[in-house]
Structures are given as structure tokens and as C-alpha cells.
Simulated assay, not measured.
Amino acid sequence: MLSAAAAAAAAAHAPHALREVPVLGPGAHVAMVSPSGPLNGPHELERAVATAESLGWTVSVGTHALARTGYFAGDDAQRGDDLLTAMQDPRVDGIWCIRGGYGAARLLPRVQQALPDMSPKALIGYSDITALHAAWQRAGLISYHGPTARSPLSGFSRASLVEVVQQRTPVLWRATDASVVRGGTASGRLAGGNLALVASLCGTPWACDFRDAIVVLEDINEATYRIDRMLTQLRLAGAFDGCRGLAIGHFTDCPATIEDGRRTVVALVEELAAALQVPTLLGVPIGHIEEQWTVPLGAWATLDADARMLQLHR
């Protein structure tokens, strides 16, 4: 466990931590939007609203939250209008994305125009919402890689969401089921999200910068050769230059075998950790899983890989 002196020293040397956003305590106004894929029906929206209200939040729902245009929750204009309405409303304290899927990156030019005039607002979601997290990071704001609103919250996920988003107390997490890929301790700001989205942002104004960062990555439904290709792309692009640590989450339903051969996610992460020479954990509770941490991207943290711990500093 980190000593009190070590924790204090790490917290004191956090020059790259981003600006905090409002605490979403009871009574906070949370806007619920669908910036990516469509919902499967009104029951998912009703469950999302009920979950938000159970957290003590006042809820408003985007006009087009139930829209569907192909594999989008409405066309780009509709999804963008809902998101920008939430961003520009001074009464809104936070934005909780109802689901992931695909489509958030298509909204980035409009989001970028609105961010400079936006009062700081919490953003919650994961998977495709990584594109919006990248925009928040570029604007110097912390955002929350956590559950989307439509999914039922397990007790574990709810407790993590509450302690990070509502209570904002210093947190020491133990990833008891994670594997130590490379030992050591490192402090840095948390950055990353869904690997496919992080890779897709290479070469854009919203490309992720992992310098001085503890990198968080997860994914779903990607064969390992595709994961290999995305990690290689990021390495060749210099995205990992200056990275301080890796807190790798779950790669759910990612088959290791294709007709040309077999490679595991473990092998890929071991290769990356060896190349970067940084402390690395694999299998922390982040990603497309029922029990997940809510990770404040942009906040300062210390990764103790040998102890399988991640400490958030406030």
C-alpha cells in the first residue's frame, strides 16, 4: 500500500491534472443524451431515467433520445442538437450518455465549437463516448469513463460511480483479479478509453496524448490481430511516447484464434509493456463488463502494479 508520504508527494506533483467539473450530488441537473447508437425501445430510456433519479438527480432527456437513423440514434444533426443543447444549458451540471455504439466522433467538429463557451460539465459514458472524452480532455476538463445510463448498475458499479462522481473523495482501488504484467509504481494523469476509438482519432485534432499519463484501454468484439494492429498504429504514431503506466481493462469477446494462427491479448499487452518499460496491469475492472470502475480521465493517479492498486488523488 502507498505510504501517506508517497501519496502526498504524488498528489503534490500533478502539474498536468485537468480542471474539475461539478460534483453531481443529490439535486444536480443531469441531461441524458444519445450521441451514438440507438436504443432498443422506450423501456431502456425509462430504466436510464429511473437509475439517474435513484441517484438523486434531476433529469432532462434529449429530444431525439429515442430516434433511429440506421445504426445511429437519429441523424448527425439530431444527435448533435441534443448534445449541444445540454452543453449550452447553464442549468445542466452533467451529461450522462445513454449508450455507446457508434457515431459520437461525427459530432466532434460541433462539440469543439461549443466547448470554449461551455461552463464545466461532467460527462459520463464509455465505449464510443471515448470520442467525446477526447474533446473534453482537449478542453482541459476531467470527464468520467463509466457506465452508460441504459445498462443496469451492479452494486459494484454504482458504488464506484457514487464515490467518484458524487462524493469525489480520494479513492484507493484494488484490482485483485488483475494480472501483473510489469511491476513498478508510476504517477500520472489518467487517459484513454476504448482502444478502437483511441486508434481512430489518430491524425485528428482530438488524437489522444499519453505523455505523462497512466493509459486506460479496453475493447469488445475485436479479434486479437485487430487489437495488435491498433496498438501498433498508436505506437508508430508516437501516441505512447512519455507514457508512465498502463492500466489495461477487459477485452471482452475478443477471439485469439483465426485461420492464420493464434495470439492472445496477454501476449499483446506483454509486448507493449516491454516496449514501453512501464508498470502494467491487465484485467482491471474497466470496459464492457458488469462490474466496472468509473475512471476520472484527466485526474491524477498513482498505479502500483505490484500491489494491483490504483489511487486517485484529489
Rank of each mutant, 00 (worst) to 15 (best):
residue 77 A to D: 15
residue 110 R to D: 12
residue 108 L to H: 00
residue 77 A to C: 11
residue 95 I to V: 14
residue 105 A to H: 03
residue 100 G to S: 14
residue 87 M to Y: 10
residue 109 P to F: 12
residue 108 L to F: 00
residue 111 V to T: 08
residue 79 R to Y: 06
residue 94 G to V: 06
residue 76 D to T: 14
residue 89 D to N: 12
residue 80 G to V: 02
residue 102 Y to W: 14
residue 96 W to F: 14
residue 74 G to C: 09
residue 101 G to Y: 07
residue 76 D to R: 15
residue 92 V to L: 03
residue 85 T to C: 02
residue 93 D to T: 04
residue 97 C to M: 12
residue 99 R to D: 08
residue 98 I to F: 06
residue 96 W to V: 14
residue 76 D to L: 13
residue 96 W to M: 14
residue 73 A to L: 10
residue 90 P to E: 14
residue 97 C to V: 15
residue 102 Y to E: 13
residue 77 A to P: 07
residue 97 C to D: 10
residue 81 D to M: 07
residue 95 I to W: 05
residue 103 G to F: 06
residue 106 R to G: 01
residue 92 V to S: 10
residue 97 C to I: 14
residue 108 L to A: 02
residue 81 D to R: 08
residue 111 V to N: 01
residue 110 R to N: 04
residue 73 A to Y: 00
residue 108 L to I: 04
residue 86 A to W: 01
residue 109 P to H: 10
residue 88 Q to P: 04
residue 98 I to P: 00
residue 87 M to Q: 04
residue 87 M to C: 07
residue 73 A to G: 09
residue 97 C to N: 13
residue 104 A to P: 11
residue 105 A to R: 09
residue 87 M to E: 06
residue 101 G to W: 03
residue 102 Y to V: 13
residue 110 R to F: 05
residue 73 A to I: 03
residue 93 D to N: 15
residue 76 D to P: 00
residue 102 Y to T: 09
residue 108 L to R: 04
residue 103 G to V: 09
residue 95 I to N: 01
residue 89 D to G: 01
residue 73 A to M: 08
residue 98 I to D: 11
residue 78 Q to M: 12
residue 82 D to R: 10
residue 90 P to V: 13
residue 105 A to G: 15
residue 83 L to R: 00
residue 111 V to M: 10
residue 99 R to C: 13
residue 111 V to C: 07
residue 106 R to Q: 04
residue 87 M to I: 05
residue 81 D to I: 00
residue 102 Y to L: 09
residue 93 D to A: 12
residue 74 G to H: 02
residue 74 G to W: 00
residue 94 G to T: 09
residue 87 M to L: 14
residue 110 R to V: 01
residue 91 R to W: 06
residue 96 W to P: 09
residue 95 I to M: 09
residue 83 L to S: 04
residue 104 A to H: 01
residue 102 Y to P: 07
residue 77 A to M: 12
residue 84 L to E: 01
residue 101 G to E: 13
residue 94 G to P: 06
residue 88 Q to M: 14
residue 75 D to G: 13
residue 80 G to D: 02
residue 110 R to M: 12
